[in-house]
Amino acid sequence: MIAEDESSILLSLEFLLRKAGFDTRVARDGEEALGVLTAFRPDVALLDVMLPRRSGLEVCRFIRAEPALAGTRILLLTAKGGRQDLQNGLAAGADEYLTKPFSTHELLERVKALAAGKGSA
């Protein structure tokens, strides 16, 4: 699942992951993301931190509190690069953290690793 409010970023992420062979669903804000998560139970959730209505961190906590989503790995995307943001993200239960702008190759590797890790866990 990709949750991102910037349409062009969302478009690029969707294109990349589809191309890499992932089955993707998109959400444009936090509320929508919760719905998609419950319905779709993705292996990996790409969450923008600054989502409208519910922040990426809230969504993160929701995933960690929901037993049904125990297998979901979380990759946080943020435009803020501070140390405090990183700690907040990891504290909220994120597995990985990428700062915008990111390299598409690195993003794909991270997502692939998370998806593979899910299998072994």
Binding site: I9, A79, K80, P101, T104
Partner: peptide, 25 residues
């Protein structure tokens, strides 16, 4: 400053992502 940084990174992210996509594909 934090907000400006955030606002600058957002378009940069798209630009970089699409450039790489175009480059790789």
């Amino acid at each position: 400053i934090s907000t400006v940084t955030h606002e600058l990174r957002t378009p940069l992210t798209s630009i970089r992502a699409f450039s790489e996509i175009l480059h790789d594909n």
